[in-house]
Design a protein around this nucleic acid. Structure first.
Lengths: 221, 221
DNA sequence: TGCAAAATTTCAATGGATGAAAAAGATAAG
DNA sequence: CTTATCTTTTTCATCCATTGAAATTTTGCA
């Protein structure tokens, strides 16, 4: 799977029979794996079972995904591309904080929108990921890699205002706050709206600073 | 290894021969593993080799560490305990921002102090961790778990001022900023002092908010 | 149709991780 | 010192993810 394939991975138009077949196989693997994971659990599902359910050999699995964990994050590249696009679309009047807040808004909205997957599916996947240490580790790694690229994109959006390190710190603070808040909120049953609000409030804390938490009236809103 | 053992893991006083022998074995495993990792690389070193170098059976390794990666993070429990202690030692006049800044200061100082390990050793370990995907993943997981406990400790330090979610966001922003900044800074050769400064500046960004980056003169300093 | 490229399968091997039972070592009591 | 007991280590057997290489099949194209 070279760069060209990766770039076109989630675009709609595919040409030859060969490519269409590959996409079908990929989709079959994803669906088989996610179904089995939710039915029997991640650890309990073997690659042999996934491959069998998708009608390919076990070896073939690894020409589509680098590891058992990676199937779960099959759409992470698309998500990152969208996020980078938000930063790249910076307008002349934009502030760093405003642009980052737009990033969080769009990401949260898309992550929980119907166009993408059902909210129930999203919640299921979140539980799956947080419940399995191996998946949790992989998720954190994906997030970490994404942050590197977002920091680079933010620096490029404000080349004169932000040093690379400041950009990294800003992205890190934003992502760290949102992630921590969402996870902290996951114990109880929450509605889509509530989780969205939690993430947004965390973004505000990161934007306006922890110091705002020390003020009597929070100027964050 | 039950709770009592874990609690006393890094305290000085051990009684019986049995315990002393266990500590010696643990230490032998750590030293053998770290030496082999830096000599031949992480992937290239097998558990069989580590066990042989420490004069135990391969199986015994797993009664000391849950995985090959875990040896590298043998002191993470102690580090976390120190960090939690800082938060627990909150004084009446402390602000959230002030307490968190003290946390970063003490953590950075201790992580790079001679009492702990040589700075060269610390840098070697950092390179090792960032270079090996498996170790990077484990590091992020450890950091993530630590953040959960720190968020809890911060909430307990300011039970009336911070909701659990706000505490999580604050800790997440702080940790995210510091981590991102340090990693972003690691490409070039940096002195101890420079890395320390980078982390502290990132903490200031998280504390005072990304909005401060939008101001002409940064009020962060 | 037949050749070249790409994808899949088959086969074999490595190495991390785990469970269970046997063996060896340490502790405490008599 | 010796025995009964508890802990730790070893031995043995096994599972499964992952990888490399060679053989085979499928697809694209002349």
């Amino acid at each position: 799977m070279d760069e060209k394939d990766k770039a076109v991975q989630y675009s709609s138009g595919m040409v030859g029979l060969r490519e269409r077949k590959k996409q079908r196989t990929r989709q079959a693997l994803i669906e088989a794996a996610l179904r089995l994971f939710s039915e029997k659990g991640f650890e309990e599902t073997t690659l042999a079972e996934i491959a069998a359910a998708a009608d390919v050999s076990t070896r073939t699995f690894f020409s589509y995904f680098a590891s058992k964990e990676d199937v779960v994050f099959h759409d992470s590249a698309e998500r990152l591309d969208r996020a980078v696009a938000v930063l790249a679309g910076r307008q002349p009047g934009d502030t760093v904080a405003g642009l980052l807040l737009r990033l969080v808004d769009e990401s949260l909205r898309w992550a929980t929108s119907e166009e993408n997957i059902t909210f129930e599916d999203a919640r299921l996947r979140l539980r799956l990921v947080l419940g399995e240490p191996a998946l949790q580790a992989r998720a954190l790694q994906v997030l970490f890699d994404d942050q590197l690229r977002l920091a680079k994109a933010l620096h490029e959006a404000f080349p004169e205002r932000l040093t690379p390190v400041d950009a990294a710190a800003a992205v890190g603070a934003m992502a760290g706050a949102v992630k921590a808040a969402i996870v902290a909120n996951l114990d109880e049953e929450r509605s889509l709206q509530e989780i969205y609000e939690t993430g947004r409030r965390a973004a505000e804390v990161a934007l306006s600073g922890v110091r705002s938490l020390d003020d009597a009236k929070t100027p964050a809103g």
